[in-house]
Design a binder for these strands. Structure first.
Lengths: 205, 205
DNA sequence: TCCTTACTGTACCGCGAGTCCAGTTAGCAG
DNA sequence: CTGCTAACTGGACTCGCGGTACAGTAAGGA
């Protein structure tokens, strides 16, 4: 509440809005401090440099994304207890969520970070890495549950399949950003959904 | 031959090597001119600014990528005249090609460009856009040929399916770059290959 | 009263992009 | 041989941005 005590959060909010709109590099410290109504000195009091800001933002983003996945698949699970159908519903929900964002998804920070090596230090890149590995584990687990019930029609590398969710989202977001269209990511997720239907369905063990 | 007359190409070569290794932003004009053994003035004689350099490099990259696809699928066609099998062979060749690169693929310039809005002007972004739209058309055409012979087992948006090739490559490269692994892109392409097998095979019209 | 937290404000540095411009060198055209 | 142009060199300079340094201050608790 007290504007003095939550300056750090205010900085993060302002920075996040600007970074999602224009990219990290395009967001100058100057404009952050202007938006948060503090001095440059104040900024560096909270973050020793731009990398510290990046780390904090990335951590926030990853936490939000994880919470989103938790929520999405929890809701899917309520609707259907079967692991395959739960996954299919979850992906549908994810696709819908991406379509509903009028501006399109803010363009995953993961890719932005991956493609700006120099700008970020090892800590930032490591956060990034851990997040992706976390998603790999999450989805591989779900796919293994599915495979325990439905025999896959083709042999599949489960790690790669786990990665495919992130990969499809990231790839879709790259297209979306480059093409300035707004539903590529959601379309690609729907294609992945079809893939999983073909791969697992109709051969219950 | 004459070092004086092909300075422009020399600049592009030096710049490309450095950009693929460290990223566009991390490549300073200073180091390009040092590598090409010219002066800063000489650089700006050939390229009015860094954007002009980016445009030239991107165009080169896109041309090379298109030539690669032409070659790959031409070779695949020689091996098998059926459109589905041609596609499957082509994707296998592509995956192998990506694995064979010891350093991994140079990390597609498309994504790098998409995620650095401020750095590039409209011209660069438009080149990027046209390239992806070109690949959409290319692959949609191939998928339509396949669909004329093999009825897809699930209804499919052909534009999205065309995009899926680029999307899977881009997504895989993002993972690869973020994880510092080296075969994610090729694995994702192999998954796409399996997808197409499941979607089209065994239902010849 | 003293210490700490959370700043403000100002001055300053280095780096890289980009500009300007005067001068040089090589080659070709008349 | 003259003159013109392309392809530079070299140096000085501006600007924005990240980052440093540090002195001072206002507010709140022990």
């Amino acid at each position: 509440m007290d504007p003095k005590t939550d300056t750090r959060s205010r900085i993060l909010n302002i920075a996040e809005a600007s970074v999602l709109k224009k990219g990290f590099e395009a967001t100058s410290i100057e404009e952050i401090v202007a938006g948060a109504d503090i001095s440059r000195g104040g900024f560096f009091y909270h973050f020793k440099d731009k990398n510290a800001l990046a780390r904090a933002m990335l951590q926030r983003y990853i936490d939000a994304e994880n919470a989103l996945y938790d929520d999405l698949f929890a809701r899917a699970r309520e609707l259907n207890d079967d692991p395959l159908h739960c996954m299919l519903i979850g992906l549908k929900l994810l696709a819908e969520m991406l379509t509903d964002m009028p501006e399109g998804h803010p363009g995953c920070v993961i890719a932005a970070t991956a493609y700006q090596d120099r700008l970020f230090d090892e800590g930032v890149r490591d956060l990034n890495r851990q997040a992706i590995l976390g998603w790999r584990t999450r989805f591989r687990g779900m796919f293994e549950e599915i495979a325990a019930v439905y025999e896959p029609k083709e042999p599949i590398n489960m790690d790669a399949l786990g990665d495919m969710v992130s990969s499809v989202v990231e790839g879709g977001l790259v297209l979306q950003r480059a093409l300035r269209e707004h539903n590529n990511a959601s379309q690609q997720i729907m294609l992945l959904r079809t893939y999983l239907k073909l791969l697992f369905a109709q051969r219950q063990i």
